[in-house]
Design a protein around this nucleic acid. Structure first.
Lengths: 203, 203
DNA sequence: GCATGTTTGTACTAAAAGGTACAGAAGAAA
DNA sequence: TTTCTTCTGTACCTTTTAGTACAAACATGC
């Protein structure tokens, strides 16, 4: 039956949402289970009933992010179909960061940056998120090429990696300087570079 | 006298070096004083004699990095006088990362990413490092402009921030994917973009 | 209503993090 | 040689972290 075990699923989701926010705010490493438990108004029993360990929770948070990206439930739109969409993709990151008054970086970048050699599973989770994002960006460049509106020279995956590196570096700089200007200028330069590969119509 | 209190200064420096390496490897947040003490073969007494707290040590590590950048003692050369130097600057980061088998990011970026709102002093330390690097890069663009070999349009600080964002994002991606290829492609695209602002001689 | 599985609350615990206290060795200054 | 400061080692301490144990409440199927 569909309505079975609904209460538990809600508690589980509540914990994941609260944890995701804390991880974004201060990193997974410096967030304790107790903090998540208090912020989500649950108890130890519930926490360890739904997640086998703190690492398990981190994994589930990342998996939830991945699902949201895949099914379009993310605050950022990854379905790029035009240069305008690509620009919006960049600017959505800047707006997200501004919303938190430049005190946070990218949720995925923040969590990816704190992985060590002993967090191989978590590293793979973050890596997969960036792989999916790269493919979504690369799909746009591919389509533009198919329409003869983009030069063939740089591989579409190369352009996609450039997009991701630019936004990640920009957001990191923005968080460190607590200033949106370096983010905006880096994004602007990134877009200028990308646009140059476009084949201008009637020219 | 110059040779006074030499032994202590050596111990202090040994702790800072070991700490810098551990912070680079696994982040400052997940490095405990005990780990630094053991790896530097010192004791609690020495640690808290030279540093008032763990935060104090983090501050000193960052200050040491800053000094190295300022007086050219860093493994990366920040004195850029040609496009070739700029390319070397980018590639030095890639080589550094490859040396650690793509398990680490940028030392400064790693530490900058883990700051939270309660680490304001540490945030300022990292911010200052990036500010100094930006100025060194901007100085090169400025000189090129003065010689009429660079278009005036983008502000030199804007170009410098673009350089830093590109290398930071690239290194983060490299660490997360444990792969040097995205780093190399992002750096290549970054250089292509920057070179376009150069005024070609006799053309 | 009873058996079964799910969900939640409370108490406890071992280890680690981050220090403090303080004694004593070692080096320079007088 | 004594005196002062610097340097080093050990023992101890409190709080936090990341859990475990286990009972009780609740829901569901029959």
């Amino acid at each position: 039956m569909k309505t079975r075990f609904v209460k538990g699923a809600e508690t589980r989701l509540r914990i994941i949402r609260v944890a995701a926010d804390l991880f974004h705010k201060q990193g997974a490493r410096s967030t304790s289970p107790d903090q998540v438990i208090e912020a989500s108004r649950t108890g130890k029993g519930q926490f360890y009933h739904y997640f086998k360990s703190k690492e398990g929770l981190v994994h589930e948070v990342l998996h939830t992010y991945l699902d949201e990206i895949k099914n379009g439930a993310s605050p950022v739109n990854y379905e790029i179909n035009s240069w305008k969409d690509l620009e919006k993709w960049f600017l959505a990151h800047v707006e997200l960061q501004k919303h938190y008054e430049m005190t946070r970086g990218c949720p995925f970048g923040t969590m990816g940056n704190e992985v060590t050699e002993s967090d191989e599973l978590i590293r793979q989770d973050v890596s997969l998120i960036f792989e999916v994002i790269k493919n979504k960006l690369a799909a746009f460049f591919m389509k533009e090429k198919a329409k003869g509106r983009l030069v063939k020279k740089p591989d579409e995956e190369e352009l996609a990696d450039f997009c991701i590196a630019t936004i990640q570096g920009a957001m990191l700089l923005g968080k460190i300087k607590r200033d949106s200007r370096p983010v905006e200028t880096a994004v602007r330069q990134g877009m200028i570079h990308l646009r140059r590969f476009a084949v201008l119509p009637g020219r």
